[in-house]
Design a protein around this nucleic acid. Structure first.
Length: 427
DNA sequence: ATCACGGTTTGCA
DNA sequence: CTAACGTGCAAACCGTGAT
């Protein structure tokens, strides 16, 4: 007889906020938010901040004065810290199953098939305790026969404190599931975003239960194949497999807003150079080569008093490359073509596309692939930067003062990845 | 009329 | 003093030219 699959979704509660709290316990029990890049929007909120009404993605400038009056602590995002804490959590969780999919910076799926359903809830508690003890981070765990149901179970574990942080749908009674599914809004389901919610409501689908009972074939015709999979998964039929090895990326993006509006070409060149280097580093880490470079700039879409300008272009390369120097030359060439003076630019973006693996590369017209010399040079660059800190070795076109750099008014120290910042705290 | 292609837009997290 | 709103990725969509 076929055993019911047991997929667990483990998710750190309010991840960025919880990371800040590990190193600053005074934040415990207080309203805290963490802001997106450039201190733009609130992207992580403690439960206390949620209770005060801070919305996900709310622009910080609208919130700032009010938030400070209410005593809400606000942090700029510190990705070095969060990435390191994430690695620690993922390593701990990996010990609980041979099959793990790291789904995002704060979430992973584990295949726990084989445990008795009743034992799994206890097992979940053990997992929670270990992560808490070894990292200081609180996690919730959802368990179900499909990834979509595991996600939903995780939501239930978060919503209902009486669950003790673990919700195991495989061991819940049909009545209990009915009660939950009829109470939870359809929009909470993985893959049902804010655009679909009103459309679903229009055809009478408001709750998870409504969606579960919808006809997958008809819904596929009306919406998309994604919708069909969501419905089948809600009914315990696995349509989305565990991806233990991440499939190779099809594009790599580096895109950032500026701290202040930028009008001159020279500053844009610096920013594009930096973004290209970051994208190229990601490219080499994944052992890939890019067939073309896309570069784009735009003014603020929110500023209605000024003329909006956005433009971008694709620069095909003669042969796939992973060389920061070549990629930067291409990006800057494109930038000079799309640049128009007289605008106040707010964002630049570099995207590497046409990605191929080392052995799938096509040569250029003259039968030349990118030489080994460039590979060696990049290897040396990457090693020096890994050893002495990212950005130690870079192209001069990135500039040095970089007055356009993004705002980070209140970033915490990189406690776990930078000795200098740690010593600074001890003082 | 249909298809493959590529570039652009939409949607999600 | 004023102005200030993220990023990464892939699926869906759409227009085009070829057949």
């Amino acid at each position: 007889m076929q055993m019911t699959r047991a997929i667990a979704l483990i998710d750190v509660n309010n991840f960025y906020v919880s990371c800040e709290r590990v190193f600053n316990p005074r934040l415990e029990g207080k309203p805290v938010v963490v802001l997106s890049n450039n201190d733009g929007c609130a992207v992580a909120r403690s439960n206390e901040a949620k209770a005060l009404g801070v919305k996900m993605g709310q622009p910080w400038f609208q919130l700032k004065d009010w938030a400070q009056r209410r005593g809400i602590a606000a942090y700029s995002s510190n990705y070095a810290l969060y990435a390191d804490m994430s690695n620690r959590v993922m390593n701990i969780l990996a010990a609980f199953s041979p099959r793990q999919e790291v789904y995002s910076i704060d979430e992973c799926f584990l295949d726990l098939t084989g445990f008795k359903a009743q034992d799994l809830t206890l097992h979940g508690q053990r997992i929670r305790r270990r992560v808490r003890q070894w990292t200081g981070l609180p996690v919730c765990i959802g368990i179900g026969p499909t990834k979509t149901l595991a996600k939903l179970a995780n939501h239930i574990a978060k919503q209902y404190p009486e669950s003790g942080g673990v919700c195991n749908l495989n061991d819940a009674s049909p009545q209990q599931r009915y009660e939950w599914f009829s109470r939870i809004a359809a929009g909470e389901v993985w893959g049902i975003g804010r655009r679909l919610v009103p459309q679903l409501r229009g055809i009478g689908i408001k709750t998870v239960l409504d969606l579960q009972r919808a006809c997958p074939v008809a819904m596929r015709a009306r919406f998309s194949v994604v919708m069909e999979k969501v419905i089948r998964e809600l009914n315990g039929v696995a349509c989305i497999e565990l991806e233990e090895i991440a499939p190779p990326r099809k594009q790599i993006v580096s895109s950032r807003s500026f701290g202040v509006p930028v009008s001159d070409l020279a500053s844009l060149e610096e920013a594009v150079s930096l973004y290209t280097r970051r994208a190229a580093e990601k490219l080499r880490r994944q052992q890939l080569f890019a067939g073309s470079v896309y570069v784009a700039i735009r003014t603020s879409p929110f500023n209605t008093r000024e003329q909006y300008y956005a433009n971008g272009m694709i620069i095909p390369l003669p042969a796939p490359s992973a060389d920061t120097i070549r990629l930067t030359k291409a990006a800057l060439w494109g930038l000079r073509r799309i640049y128009r003076s007289g605008y106040r630019y707010q964002k630049a973006r570099v995207m590497l596309t046409g990605l191929v693996g080392m052995n799938d590369r096509q040569c250029d017209l003259f039968g030349l692939a990118e030489g080994n010399k460039s590979g060696k040079l990049m290897e040396v660059m990457d090693r020096i930067n890994a050893w002495m800190g990212n950005g130690t070795l870079k192209l001069a076109s990135e500039g040095f003062r970089q007055p356009w750099k993004m705002k980070q008014a209140n970033r915490s120290p990189s406690y776990t990845t930078n000795w200098d910042e740690l010593i600074c705290v001890a003082d």
